[in-house]
Computed example of a mutant assay.
Amino acid sequence: MSEQHSVHELRRDMQTPIPAEIATWARGRVGNHLSWALPNDLSGARSWRMSSSEGIIELRVLRTHGDFQREVYAHRNAIPHLGAGRAPRLLGFEPRLRALLTLEPRGERVDDAPERGLHLMAPVHEQAGQLLRSLHDSAVRVGDRHAQAVRNTVLYIDYVDRLLDQIDSSILDGQRTVIRRRLDVVRERAPQLPSAFCHGSFGSSCWRWQRAQRTLVLTGFRRSQMMAASLDFARPSLLWADRPQLRAAFTRGYGRPFNQLEQRLLNDFAVVATVEDLRNAIRLQDSEAHAYVAVALRAAMNRLQIPDIALPTRLVGTEAPPR
């Protein structure tokens, strides 16, 4: 898709009106506000945002009832444990329409301007660890939480396994077999990993920094569910490889170091996460994200310390600034 066509598609998406029945329901909950559509996300959900005196309101219409139930559960049972103003606030939901409304927290994206270095600030990582631990511990009273976590983790690994055949990228040339061997290891060890109510896409892309208060808030809970806690360590670990002080800040905030198995599989989970991110960047035709993810995936695979998977030190067209 050319850049001109991409801009045209984005403008068309932004002009997509809210379906009448859903708009009527939303007005009844939050009043009448100027709205604009967001590009459809890869889950098939449709989203709009509205500007209000309280902040940005997001309206989401989920593709399936399962997706809807998972998001509502997260908002009602897990996200409140983070504290007031530290995450989106649920304003209303309607099962029949698979619709929910949230008030988004204020703050600047941590990954928006790498040159400002927000993503490399120790206080950001320490607070990220604190918030993640609160989220992870929110399901301690769920009776079958470990069984759920193992099942959902294996399903996610199976999903990434299928993605390997769908991704057309030179970064994976000759590496699919090796990655699948590592996926098998993660599947086998999943029952031994600590379980948690996971964010699902945890990383700097969902961190927002409130500069005046020096406070971190979280967004993007679309995939939150019981899984192995290691999944949420994967994307931040890409920033820790050469910056041990950031990892130390994170674990200080999290309240414990990684156990031996979590440490052993940390780079495996980083590879899993970056394979998924690579596929998403390609589908969204985001060249900047593709460049960053390609570099991150190459580095994560090299850190697996398996002789037959070392990748070239430089791939043409994949250099990107650290995030």
Rank of each mutant, 00 (worst) to 15 (best):
E262C: 03
L311V: 12
E288V: 13
R279H: 15
E104R: 10
A147P: 05
P80N: 07
S170K: 12
S204K: 10
Q127R: 05
A23F: 05
R109S: 13
R76C: 05
S6H: 14
L172K: 04
L193F: 09
F269S: 04
H8C: 14
L82E: 01
R162I: 08
V142I: 11
V160M: 04
P307E: 07
S138I: 01
A78H: 02
L42C: 09
R181S: 11
V154Y: 06
L297P: 02
R86V: 07
L38S: 07
H136R: 03
L97W: 00
E58Y: 07
A128G: 06
G143I: 05
A289P: 06
R252V: 01
A190D: 02
A270Q: 03
Y254C: 05
R60N: 08
D41G: 06
R247P: 06
G66V: 09
L100A: 02
P322V: 01
A84T: 14
P322Y: 04
R182S: 07
P244W: 00
H119S: 14
Q192D: 11
G28T: 09
Q69L: 06
I57A: 01
S6W: 08
G203T: 00
L218I: 03
P312M: 03
M227H: 06
I309S: 12
W25F: 08
E115H: 03
D168V: 09
T274K: 10
V178I: 12
E276D: 06
I57W: 05
A23Q: 09
V150I: 02
A196G: 04
T153P: 05
R303I: 08
Q175F: 07
L239M: 10
L118F: 05
Q305V: 14
V185M: 11
E126I: 08
R247Y: 11
S52P: 08
L100R: 06
D232S: 03
V275T: 00
G255T: 08
T318F: 13
L246F: 00
L131Y: 00
T219M: 07
W48Y: 00
N267D: 15
A26I: 12
I56M: 14
R12T: 15
I171D: 02
E288S: 13
Q213T: 08
R181T: 07
Q69D: 12
I309M: 10
G107K: 03
A20F: 11
T215W: 13
E21G: 06
E3V: 12
Y73C: 13
R256I: 01
P19T: 04
I171G: 00
Y292D: 11
N259T: 04
I309V: 13
A45H: 06
P88E: 04
H290A: 12
R181H: 13
N267V: 09
Q210H: 13
W48R: 05
G28K: 03
T24Q: 11
L62Q: 15
H199M: 02
L297K: 05
R303Y: 14
D168I: 07
E58C: 09
E58K: 11
L231I: 06
R11N: 04
L10P: 12
I309P: 09
E3H: 13
R252L: 09
D144E: 14
Q263N: 15
I79R: 06
R187K: 05
T219E: 10
I57R: 03
R314I: 10
Q69P: 10
R256L: 03
